[in-house]
Design a protein around this nucleic acid. Structure first.
Lengths: 138, 138
DNA sequence: GTGCCTGCAAATGATTTGCATACGA
DNA sequence: TCGTATGCAAATCATTTGCAGGCAC
């Protein structure tokens, strides 16, 4: 456990982020349980429950700093709230309409062929596939 | 031209939407120029410029009604504003980071293989591929 | 000690809502 | 006429910002 904390601290330091109590706590929550997608609200609640009273604004700041550092990324779903994903690699998602729920696509043997050329002067940063689901009508 | 208007009216009627002046005007703007993606703000401005002073709230209402009717759809980009797409078929987009700009993927020979099975009781409503672009560093 | 972090509260920006009026069928 | 649409302004919700006090180095 102590080791895990050290890991996170090092990781933050490597990104040029001071390993403050709040940042370490949030990073711990984010990375302790494998891949996750959550909103600012959700993480804030988790932190509070875990006995780390962080301000909502700090969670916003921190998640954006983590995003800039490449530790997490923003999911491209059209929801009122922003979703952050702890898995930064090219992988894909189910998005349940109406319920605004994000699910990982289990076996990612999904494959994309014939990726188009990006326009002049641009390069591909990331490819996102969102498979939108709806409740099957009986 | 008169014919185009009639088309739109019929189309709206078929969706159970009264072809009011505002709805027809907005639909005309949306569908006159082929596929488009725009925000509420943009369409509102276009309408005003075109001499159809619609209220912003009405544009919001109307676009959501059109979406429910399947005439347009919401794009899955993570922007502050919602983007609506007049092309309802499965097709894909470039999204320019930083500039919050949506571009159509030109030759859509992009192909997805091994689509995963949706979870029990769910079905695939739509598949979205977003290729996120960034300015190529010189 | 110095400068980056944090928290709070207020500001902002997109979107929604309530209600009175206007319009299409 | 009758019920639905529209417009306006106020309300709401997520997110951002300014600034005073704290903490890491």
């Amino acid at each position: 456990m102590a080791e895990a904390v050290t890991d996170v601290e090092t990781r933050l330091r490597d990104c040029g982020l001071r390993p403050t109590r709040q940042r370490v706590a949030l990073a711990d929550l984010l990375f302790a349980k494998g891949d996750r997608h959550l909103t600012v609200e959700e993480l804030h609640e988790e932190a509070t429950t875990a006995g780390v009273p962080v301000s909502l604004a700090t969670v916003y700041n921190t998640l954006h700093q983590f995003t800039e550092a490449g530790l997490i990324r923003v999911l491209a779903v059209e929801s009122a709230k922003t979703y952050f994903d702890t898995n930064v690699s090219d992988h894909h998602h189910f998005f349940v309409e109406g319920r605004n729920e994000v699910l990982d696509i289990p076996v990612s043997n999904l494959q994309i062929d014939n990726l188009p050329e990006p326009p002049e002067g641009m390069e591909i940063a990331h490819v996102d596939v969102i498979i939108r689901l709806r409740e099957k009508r009986r």
